[in-house]
Amino acid sequence: MKSDAQLQSDVMEELEWEPSVDHSHIGVSANDGIVTLSGSVKSYAEKLAAEKAARRVRDVRGIAEEIQVRFPSDPKTSDPEIAKRILDVLAWDVTIPDDRISVKVEHGWVTLSGTVDWNYQKETAKKDASKIHGVVGISNLIEVRQLPTSRDIRDRIMSAFRRSANLDANSISVATDGGTVKLSGQVHAWHERQIAERAAWAAPGVNRVEDNIVVV
Results as ranks from 00 to 15, higher is better:
residue 1 M to L: 15
residue 11 V to T: 12
residue 12 M to R: 15
residue 15 L to D: 06
residue 15 L to Q: 07
residue 16 E to N: 05
residue 18 E to I: 02
residue 21 V to F: 09
residue 22 D to R: 14
residue 23 H to T: 02
residue 23 H to C: 03
residue 24 S to T: 11
residue 27 G to M: 10
residue 29 S to M: 05
residue 30 A to P: 05
residue 33 G to P: 06
residue 33 G to H: 03
residue 34 I to E: 13
residue 37 L to T: 12
residue 38 S to G: 04
residue 41 V to E: 07
residue 43 S to F: 04
residue 45 A to K: 06
residue 47 K to W: 04
residue 49 A to L: 03
residue 50 A to E: 07
residue 52 K to A: 15
residue 54 A to G: 10
residue 58 R to H: 12
residue 58 R to S: 15
residue 61 R to C: 09
residue 68 Q to C: 12
residue 68 Q to I: 07
residue 69 V to L: 14
residue 72 P to V: 02
residue 75 P to S: 00
residue 76 K to A: 14
residue 77 T to F: 10
residue 84 K to L: 05
residue 85 R to Y: 09
residue 86 I to W: 05
residue 92 W to M: 09
residue 93 D to C: 08
residue 94 V to D: 09
residue 95 T to G: 04
residue 95 T to R: 15
residue 96 I to L: 10
residue 97 P to D: 13
residue 97 P to Q: 13
residue 98 D to Y: 13
residue 104 K to I: 11
residue 104 K to W: 08
residue 105 V to Y: 05
residue 109 W to S: 02
residue 110 V to F: 03
residue 111 T to R: 10
residue 112 L to V: 04
residue 115 T to C: 07
residue 118 W to P: 02
residue 118 W to T: 05
residue 118 W to Q: 11
residue 122 K to D: 07
residue 123 E to P: 01
residue 124 T to P: 02
residue 125 A to L: 03
residue 127 K to C: 01
residue 130 S to A: 14
residue 130 S to K: 05
residue 132 I to R: 01
residue 138 I to G: 07
residue 142 I to R: 02
residue 144 V to T: 08
residue 145 R to E: 05
residue 145 R to H: 03
residue 146 Q to I: 12
residue 147 L to Y: 04
residue 148 P to K: 14
residue 150 S to W: 10
residue 152 D to G: 10
residue 152 D to S: 14
residue 158 M to A: 11
residue 161 F to A: 10
residue 163 R to C: 09
residue 164 S to R: 12
residue 164 S to A: 15
residue 165 A to H: 03
residue 166 N to K: 05
residue 167 L to C: 09
residue 168 D to G: 00
residue 169 A to P: 00
residue 171 S to H: 12
residue 173 S to T: 11
residue 174 V to P: 02
residue 174 V to R: 01
residue 177 D to M: 03
residue 179 G to A: 06
residue 180 T to Q: 12
residue 185 G to S: 06
residue 185 G to M: 01
residue 187 V to I: 14
residue 189 A to G: 08
residue 189 A to L: 11
residue 193 R to P: 04
residue 194 Q to W: 04
residue 196 A to R: 00
residue 197 E to Y: 06
residue 198 R to G: 01
residue 203 A to H: 01
residue 207 N to M: 02
residue 209 V to P: 07
residue 209 V to K: 07
residue 210 E to S: 03
residue 214 V to C: 03
